[in-house]
């Protein structure tokens, strides 16, 4: 599937960009986010890191529009034209399923793609599309499985497939691999990297796993109510602000042993 799409790429350019300007969120009289400014270029993976309670998930929700922030979100295409609200995909942090919950992978996709209520019927056309969507992340065989019976890695790939239909301008991932084993994590990020290159998506990744961040992301933004530091992983991890929050151990360990970030 991925190879097929390569022949027909969207305007792949690295020029379109998403500008988050002066985002602020106040809840219960307290600033959760304040003066957040972030520019995200397409085709780039930006990692959002920060201590617990820094407002990372809130920022994702504000970008999605679930929470109304002050400030503005602008999406500019490759000609620098304002193109309105971007298409945003989202992969949640935890999707807990009661193992007895009678929901199949197909049900979940049909609920998103179809207007016909999923308890009534599904069209064969939609079913075929769903199958193709799943093939994008090499998971076609999961079509009729119960969600509760998927492994953590399988579930994450299903959610990835869901979040990239339609192909989003921005893909938000909230700790997508928490609780998934090493192998599953690698497969997941490999898939994400391929998708990013082929579809020219901007990706914002919330993660506590700094070694993963160092390995896969192009840019890192350190958030604690506001953006404290933003730049290449090596820059942010050695910044004064990062060391203040997380100590020097991390900042030294990440690049000495892991060979640094891939791009």
């Amino acid at each position: 599937m991925i190879e097929e799409q390569v022949n027909n790429p969207r305007n792949s350019c690295g020029l379109c960009c998403t500008k988050i300007e002066n985002f602020g969120v106040v809840r219960g009289g307290k600033d959760i986010l304040k003066d957040v400014n972030l520019h995200i270029h397409c085709g780039e993976m930006t990692a959002l890191i920060g201590p617990n309670g820094a407002g990372k998930t809130t920022l994702l929700k504000a970008i999605l529009g679930e929470i109304k922030p002050s400030g503005s979100l602008q999406f500019l295409d490759h000609k620098g034209k304002h193109t309105g609200h971007p298409v945003i995909g989202y992969i949640p942090q935890h999707l807990y399923f009661d193992r007895n919950s009678p929901v199949s992978v197909l049900d979940l996709f049909c609920a998103v793609k179809s207007k016909i209520p999923i308890w009534l019927l599904e069209s064969n056309e939609v079913k075929k599309e769903v199958k193709e969507n799943l093939e994008r992340v090499s998971s076609g065989h999961l079509l009729n499985k119960k969600l509760g019976h998927l492994s953590g890695g399988e579930l994450q790939r299903v959610l990835l497939a869901l979040s990239i239909d339609p192909i989003p301008d921005i893909l938000l991932m909230d700790e997508p691999v928490s609780g998934i084993d090493q192998k599953g994590t690698e497969v997941f990020y490999q898939t994400v990297s391929e998708l990013r290159e082929n579809f020219d998506m901007s990706i914002i990744l919330v993660s506590h796993d700094f070694s993963l961040v160092a390995q896969y992301s192009d840019r890192v933004a350190l958030l604690d109510k506001t953006i404290l530091s933003c730049g290449k992983p090596s820059e942010v991890f050695s910044s004064k602000e990062f060391i203040n929050l997380f100590g020097e151990v991390w900042s030294r360990g990440l690049f000495d042993n892991k060979g640094g970030n891939q791009s």
Binding site: L60, K61, L64, G65, E66, I88, G89, Y90, P92, L95, V103, L108, C110, A111, V112, S114, K115, P117, I118, W119, L120, L159, S163, L172
Partner: peptide, 26 residues
């Protein structure tokens, strides 16, 4: 009403933020 809103309601019941990302008025 049930035919019209079921899929949206279903998505919201699975994960609110995910439903919002799929343009559901939860």
């Amino acid at each position: 009403i049930w035919v019209l809103i079921f899929n949206k309601l279903f998505l919201a019941s699975i994960n609110k933020t995910f439903a919002v990302s799929k343009k559901v008025n939860t």
